[in-house]
Design a binder for these strands. Structure first.
Lengths: 130, 130, 130, 130
DNA sequence: GTGGTCTAGACCACA
DNA sequence: GTGGTCTAGACCACA
């Protein structure tokens, strides 16, 4: 029933886990523009986490333009230009792909092989969803 | 002219930077099995870094089976089964690819688009090397 | 009254002494799963030892799956499958027994004699506890 | 064809490996009293090891009374009272057994179980020799 | 308050 | 000369 999930022992800072989770939810359209997010206190209680941790994640999301703080009324999903958010998605993915290709290159594995691996994994995913 | 390079301001701990750099060099065959690595002190001097930091990286590499410590004679690249290290390379890459696909999926971007993006980036890399 | 004891002059590195002591305490059930361990600084103060030394021991214990690091909240005994840890106990003991038998064999002492010696010593221990 | 074998990457100091290997060979009667050991130089060449390392092992063995240095003629197995060397064997084994029992106790495994484990392993060894 | 990282420098075992 | 261990003390991210 919780909105968000974290794994406290994963090594990734909790605020970052929250940040990227909500970031994706917004980019994905899971939260509509203008929609209210659960309050810092609610999330903190649900996840058994320090309120400051939640607050830090919300603060970052505000800074990046994903959320808008309505004074006294909590956080709300920001109005965003659809084109911009598409752009952001691709920026995120491109960064990951570049890292992937760099690593592959340093291990002496060429582009063909990487594309084959990606295709293969993508199909595996597809099947597992059927 | 240094064997290794670090970026002290990247936020990634220096010993981890060294670890993954050397890990890739070994997997890549840049260092042959049995070959001596530069001594802790040499690396420390070159990079203007504390010997313990280098030592920590070397220690991790030994634990993972990449290096072998010869008492009093320094560190040497471990004998490794070629098949095993191929396997490791693919394990590393597959892990990265799975993350990529998960992220993409959560952002509502399908496999086709991802493969297109990867192909595109791979070609960009290729060109920039020519 | 200290939780842990070390002998600084034994030649065995302090971090290793701590590691195997805590390892046994966890395997033994002295610390329950989820229980908090004393903080690095507490232990360091008690034993009059550098915090980094304690930290090194804790780090090893985390790596081996005995402890879990809760960010900003200290170390906690990991959830472990009881069957697995039983297995680990026996692995440790079997390794010691095999060494014992190899040594005995190399000295021309047969299995009967070894079993007799073990039985004898076990009874001595028992008596000294009464 | 080598008299002795070492494993340079095992973590155990080479001089200690040599020491205990020769100790057992003497206790076991593999080397008779008065018999010559190979020279420091020979062993060092065979094992591709620093002569000082061999020398250190021989020195320790002399100190413990296993070898006698004949000036200008090399090392020779010492004349030893049979009773004494029996005693030494048992001292070594008893020490190992005590460690075993201590460990077992700290892991909550009782004497019966340990004796069972030893018996079981001893029989396994016997079978594998047939 | 918690652990993580790093430095500067000392001392040690091993070869 | 090689790596291993430890200290004292600093600074940092995280909660």
């Amino acid at each position: 029933m919780d909105q968000f999930t974290i794994s406290p022992s994963s090594g990734v800072p909790i605020y970052k886990q929250l940040f990227s989770q909500i970031e994706r939810m917004v980019l994905n359209g899971y939260f509509a523009a203008g929609e209210h997010l659960p309050s810092v206190r609610q999330v903190a209680t649900n996840l058994e986490v320090n309120p400051m941790t939640v607050s830090k994640a919300y603060g970052l999301l505000e800074e990046r333009g994903y959320l808008t703080r309505l004074r006294g009324k909590g956080m709300v999903v920001a109005q965003r230009d659809e084109a911009v958010s598409q752009q952001e998605k691709f920026k995120m993915l491109t960064k990951m792909i570049e890292e992937l290709l760099t690593q592959a290159q340093q291990m002496g594995i060429n582009e063909q092989e990487i594309i084959a691996l990606v295709t293969e994994n993508a199909q595996k995913d597809k099947k597992s969803k059927e």
